[in-house]
Amino acid sequence: MLKKNFRMILDFEKPIVELEKKIAEMEEYARETGVDLSEDIQRLQKKVEGLRKDVYQKLTPWQRVQLARHPDRPYTLDYIQRITQDFLELHGDRYFADDPAMIAGIGRIDDFRVAIIGHQKGRDVKENLYRNFGMSNPEGYRKALRIMQLAAKMNMPVITFIDTPGAYPGIGAEERGQAEAIAKNLREMSRLPVPIIITIIGEGASGGALGIGVGDVILMMENCWYSVISPEGCAAILWRDNAKAPQAAEAMKLTAPDLLELGIIDKIIPEPDGGAHWDWDAAASTLKKYLLEELRRLVQIPTDELVAKRVEKFSKMGYWKEA
């Protein structure tokens, strides 16, 4: 099942990985010596399956945060590669710069022409420096809006992938209006006259995530988190202690099942056993299935109705009492 020899293993993944290693060793031994170990192997395989179910069905919110951040998880470009045809990446906000932390482009998903926008993390140190760890500057949000408006003009649905630890907190970002760039995207996305499908594919932190997160339907992959601040940030402010991040993750209700219950997201996209990082192709194919389903449904809704429903969807969000 392992795709490559080196993989970062999270603590709670270790027992599973070790058992799998043992099975592989036994298979190897059986092949080499011709000794029949099939019964033992089958027994162990059952054990692995049981263990996997056990671990992954009882993930704590903090474990989900770790899975969402797993360095082997597929990122925006990995999905784009697997689900689109003829994808062309487009660059630049036409004001200041191109932002490599935000991907924008146009292409096809089977029968649909679409624009795709998404945060992009890097796989290693060098690439992460280039991608700024998936933290966009204002240019990223402005590029995203430019391509969304192109999509509106060309009557193409918009698909966005959220995967960011937050909008970049830097001096230049403040000078060039990080808040203004995000705010404008929120306003313009709320009235964009084409369908918008949002999917959280990894981390969804705060305004940096929401800046490409207003749409007609909000999907979330199973092992992701989405909230107003990172668990570490929340812990630092409310507990005055970064190490309390696991408690903060618990309190913030940031997992997909929690957010579905709260009415923040619409659907959870199941991931391959153990998480999307174990099988990119399977994860991408499930994602594609869900996107196509939403595309087929949304393109049939008249534009006015679509936009009105979108505004209504967000208007309803919130909990209060009125005496």
Binding site: I182, A183, L186, R187, S190, R191, S206, G207, L210, G213, V214, Y226, S227, V228, I229, C234, I237, L238, M252, K253, L254, L259, L262, I264, R310, V311, F314, S315, M317, G318, Y319
Partner: peptide
Amino acid sequence: ARMMEGAISLMQLAKTSA
């Protein structure tokens, strides 16, 4: 945004902007 309401408070940004 108010951290104690988690993602719900984040959604208030989208709501007011819409």
